[in-house]
């Protein structure tokens, strides 16, 4: 599912965190958003599922179209939107429930009636994140007893269970060790056959390794976006070049 962003501006009170952002994200691709810390990557990501609504004093202008609908429209149905656009957070945040209950959390809130088929959903979702074999005998254990990597995978499984089209990932590997990071990246490449993925990272190598397209942000502006290899080999903007050559840290 395409996402089109047109003239997007966002303010936290008086502070403008996004400035005239224009970008589009293509279907079944991994797009990485890179940039130094504080440049507005998370803010941009949180526009797509309207999570910024939770913060008091946020004002947004412009247009973000998903599925031919402007999701910034005040009348947009947030439940429908968030079902379609799932989010993985920086720190894995499974609920303090069993592994099983974490996975079926979404399906249960979205369909009031049918309780059957839940086992299948759990199996399918955990298989998608390659956790099923590890966890199939401990589904009733608390999700908080898992390792960080398992928790993050579980959070992805929890999303997959509601069958979203788009996965937003905000630095999903920042708490993980290099091997675990590697495995999550492999998983992302696996998932892109079925999902449109937008990943925020301040790790350029991760962006270069795992994404198809890349957008570079600086101080609330989207400096440039395009195919990942182009951005990393022939950046058009001087600032992009400086960043990827490591001058911003």
């Amino acid at each position: 599912m395409n996402i089109e962003v047109k003239d997007l501006n966002l303010w936290y009170g008086q502070f403008q965190a996004l400035k005239d952002v224009n970008i589009s994200f293509s279907e079944k691709r991994i797009t990485a958003i890179i940039g130094p810390s504080g440049c507005g990557k998370s803010t941009l990501l949180r526009v797509f599922n309207r999570m910024n609504d939770l913060i008091e004093g946020v004002r947004t202008t412009g247009e973000v179209t998903i599925d031919r609908e402007n999701i910034l429209d005040p009348s947009a149905d947030l439940v429908v939107l968030r079902k379609k656009v799932g989010m993985v957070f920086q720190r894995p945040n499974p609920f303090p429930l069993s592994i099983y209950d974490n996975v079926i959390f979404g399906p249960k809130i979205h369909s009031s009636k049918n309780k059957d088929g839940l086992d299948e959903i759990v199996q399918y979702s955990l298989e998608s994140v390659l956790l099923w074999d590890e966890l199939k005998d401990k589904l009733r254990k608390s999700a908080l007893s898992l390792s960080l990597e398992q928790k993050q995978r579980l959070c992805i499984a929890r999303l997959i269970a509601v069958k979203p089209d788009i996965l937003l990932m905000d630095e999903p590997c920042s708490t993980l060790d290099p091997q675990a990071t590697q495995r999550i990246e492999d998983l992302m490449r696996e998932l892109k056959h079925n999902y449109t993925i937008i990943i925020v990272t301040h790790n350029m190598h991760q962006a270069a390794r795992s994404s198809d397209e890349t957008g570079f942000m600086l101080l609330g502006e989207l400096i440039e976006a395009g195919k990942t290899e182009d951005i990393f080999t022939y950046p058009k903007d001087k600032r992009t070049e400086d960043y990827i050559s490591g001058q911003y840290g």
């Binding site: 599922n49 999570m51 939770l54 947030l78 439940v79 429908v80 939107l81 968030r82 079902k83 799932g86 989010m87 957070f89 720190r91 945040n93 499974p94 609920f95 303090p96 959390f105 979404g106 809130i109 979205h110 959070c155 929890r158 999303l159 509601v162």
Partner: peptide
């Protein structure tokens, strides 16, 4: 983060509270 996680999954405010 629990609350954010639930809302991001499309839970309503009330569902977030009691679940």
């Amino acid at each position: 983060t629990y609350k954010e996680g639930a809302l991001a999954l499309g839970a309503t405010h009330w569902q977030t509270i009691y679940k």
